[in-house]
């Protein structure tokens, strides 16, 4: 794991608004992406993030660890 499971969850959460907004922004630039394409591209991106996260990393574990909360 390159990042902790919790970190991955948060990264995925941030990817969702980025994908939603990217479609709107692109439309202003004249590039029209259909909702279906957005979903497909989104799934690809999210899968890529997951694959990146679970791939054997450089060995530097994320410093986050359980603490009293």
């Amino acid at each position: 794991m390159r990042i902790s499971p919790a970190g991955l969850l948060v990264v995925l959460a941030f990817a969702v608004p980025a994908l939603v907004q990217a479609r709107t922004v692109l439309a202003f630039a004249g590039v029209h992406v259909s909702p279906l394409q957005t979903v497909l591209i989104g799934l690809l991106v999210l899968t890529a993030v997951v694959l990146w996260a679970v791939a054997p990393g450089s060995g530097t574990e994320a410093p986050s660890e359980p603490n009293g909360g």
Binding site: I3, S4, P5, A6, G7, L9, V10, A62, P63, S64, E65, P66, N67, G69
Partner: peptide
Amino acid sequence: RALPWRDPV
């Protein structure tokens, strides 16, 4: 990245 993202609080 060093923030405690595992902590729901």
